[in-house]
Amino acid sequence: MTNIHRCVRVCQNRTCKKQGSAAVLAAFQAFSIPDVTVTASACLGQCGNGPMVLVLPDMVWYSRVQPQEVAVLVEQHLLGGQIVKPMLYHRFHPR
C-alpha cells in the first residue's frame, strides 16, 4: 500500500464545516506526505458523521476526524500502510 499515489479528500460542505472540517483539512495540509495529494472535497454524502475523510484509491472512509487525530492517520495509514480501525466509518467498514 505504500508505493501508490493516494488522494485524501476532506469534506468541506456545510455540515462537515460546522463540525470542524476546515481545521482537519489544514492539519493534513501541514504535513508533507510523499505520493499523497490532500484536497478539499464537496459533499461526500455522509452528512452528520463528519468531518469525513476519504482515502483514495484505498476507498477507506474515516468519520468524525478531529484535527489532533490527523497525525495518527498520516503516520499509520498514509506512511505505514495500516488502516486506523477505531476511526473507520461504520457504514462502509462494519466491525
Rank of each mutant, 00 (worst) to 15 (best):
M1L: 00
M1G: 03
T2I: 15
N3T: 15
N3R: 09
I4K: 09
I4A: 11
H5C: 01
R6N: 06
C7T: 15
C7A: 11
C7M: 13
V8W: 05
R9E: 00
R9K: 02
V10E: 15
V10G: 09
V10T: 10
C11T: 10
Q12R: 09
Q12W: 05
N13P: 04
N13Q: 13
R14C: 11
R14T: 12
T15G: 00
K17G: 12
K17T: 12
Q19G: 01
Q19A: 12
Q19N: 09
Q19L: 15
G20N: 10
G20S: 13
G20I: 10
A22S: 07
A22I: 06
A23G: 03
V24L: 05
L25V: 02
L25H: 02
A26P: 07
F28E: 01
F28A: 02
Q29W: 05
A30R: 00
A30F: 00
S32H: 15
S32T: 14
I33T: 03
I33V: 15
P34C: 12
P34I: 15
D35S: 13
D35N: 11
V36Y: 03
V36Q: 00
T37M: 04
V38F: 02
V38N: 01
V38E: 03
A40L: 04
S41L: 08
S41M: 06
A42S: 12
C43V: 07
C43Q: 04
C43W: 04
L44S: 06
L44G: 02
G45Y: 08
G45N: 06
G45R: 03
Q46V: 13
Q46C: 09
C47S: 07
G48P: 08
P51E: 03
P51T: 08
M52Q: 05
M52S: 11
M52I: 15
V53I: 14
V53S: 05
V53F: 08
V53E: 07
L54N: 02
V55W: 05
P57R: 00
D58P: 10
M59H: 10
M59G: 08
V60K: 01
W61M: 03
W61A: 05
Y62S: 00
R64V: 03
P67L: 13
P67E: 10
Q68F: 14
Q68G: 10
Q68V: 14
Q68R: 11
Q68E: 13
E69C: 12
E69S: 08
E69F: 13
E69I: 10
A71D: 12
A71H: 10
L73M: 11
V74H: 04
E75G: 14
E75A: 14
E75K: 14
Q76L: 12
Q76E: 13
H77K: 06
H77N: 09
L78C: 06
L79G: 01
L79V: 05
G80R: 05
G80M: 14
G81D: 09
G81W: 15
Q82S: 08
Q82M: 09
Q82G: 03
Q82A: 14
Q82P: 01
I83A: 06
I83K: 00
I83S: 03
K85L: 11
M87R: 08
L88W: 01
Y89N: 08
Y89H: 11
Y89W: 14
R91G: 07
F92N: 12
F92W: 13
F92D: 10
H93P: 08
H93R: 00
H93E: 06
P94T: 11
P94I: 15
P94D: 12
P94L: 10
P94A: 13
R95D: 06
R95W: 01
